[in-house]
């Protein structure tokens, strides 16, 4: 622990500001709360929003897990875990089941989460309408009035052009029947895990200075048409390491002849599954 900095880097007033914003976010599920994002010692776009949320949540007894692309050992995940080990001295883990706070980029763990766990997402672009409408003043108005026809225009156009909805990650959801929300760039494979999750889900976008939340057991609907329902990715393969046929798979090129293998993106899940299979 580095003694010259406050516990978890941020000063206590800033943490209070963050907690107030998070409470507001929980009170209005899916609503993007503007907050006074601080400049963190990690670059914008590398998880500064998630780091601020985690810093506001952490207490000395927490057990922190950090994943990037589902893996604990990718460099950015390692770096964020190192940061909190250094500035807060909290215990860290790679086991999903053991963590009280999990900060993630681009995945939701395969192991089902519990009520006593909080999942913190790093969000690059909190505004699901941004690619359709670049003006912030306009998108805020659209949210205020639940004026979301434009999003369905995009989905309609996908089906008309490609035969099905061509959004594979960061797939827009409607939270609690009210706010159109970005689930962050998780694959749509993970979207069903958002619906009625027992764990609190918090989202932090540092660069864009927005926080939002999906409280436990909240309805989260992935947008679709009645006759073109939401579908998730499926693989013909199973994980080459643990044999799971239910997890999200990473494709790995193993030689220069283009030979591929498919392995679990969630490294903790893969290890657990493998251990069970061996036992």
């Amino acid at each position: 622990m580095t003694p010259t900095y406050n516990f978890a880097f941020l000063d206590e007033n800033t943490k209070r500001m963050l907690r107030r914003a998070l409470l507001k976010a929980v009170a209005i599920p899916g609503y993007q709360v503007p907050f006074g994002s601080r400049e963190m010692p990690l670059p914008y776009g590398w998880g500064t929003g998630g780091i601020q949320v985690t810093a506001a949540l952490l207490g000395p007894d927490d057990v922190l897990k950090v994943i990037d692309q589902g893996a604990d050992d990718t460099t950015n995940a390692v770096n964020i875990r190192r940061f909190f080990a250094r500035t807060a001295g909290v215990a860290t883990t790679e086991r999903t089941a053991e963590a009280s706070v999990i900060q993630t980029r681009h995945r939701i763990p395969e192991t089902p989460l519990r009520e006593d766990q909080i999942l913190v997402f790093q969000v690059p672009e909190p505004e699901p309408l941004r690619t359709l409408e670049p003006r912030e003043a306009e998108t805020r108005t659209m949210h205020a009035l639940a004026d979301y026809g434009l999003m369905h225009v995009k989905l309609y156009e996908d089906i008309a052009q490609y035969g099905h909805i061509a959004t594979s990650y960061d797939y827009p959801v409607l939270v609690d029947g009210r706010f159109l929300t970005s689930p962050s760039p998780i694959p749509k494979f993970d979207n069903p895990k958002l619906d009625h999750s027992p764990a609190l889900m918090l989202f932090g976008a540092g660069r864009e200075k927005r926080l939002y939340a999906i409280p436990p057991y909240t309805q989260v609907e992935s947008l679709a048409f009645d006759d073109h329902p939401f579908e998730i990715q499926r693989w013909e393969h199973q994980c080459a390491l643990c044999g799971s046929g239910e997890s999200y798979l990473d494709e790995v090129v193993v030689d220069d002849c283009g030979t591929r293998m498919f392995v679990c993106s969630d490294t903790d899940y893969c290890g657990e599954h493998l251990a069970e299979a061996v036992a």
Partner: peptide, 26 residues
């Protein structure tokens, strides 16, 4: 008009804004 989407999407937009969610019907 919305020039970056198809003619069909242009006609269907107002219906979708009113909540119609049946692609075939649209």
């Amino acid at each position: 008009l919305r020039l970056n989407v198809s003619a069909g999407a242009n006609v269907a937009e107002r219906l979708m804004a009113l909540g119609m969610r049946d692609y075939g019907r649209l």
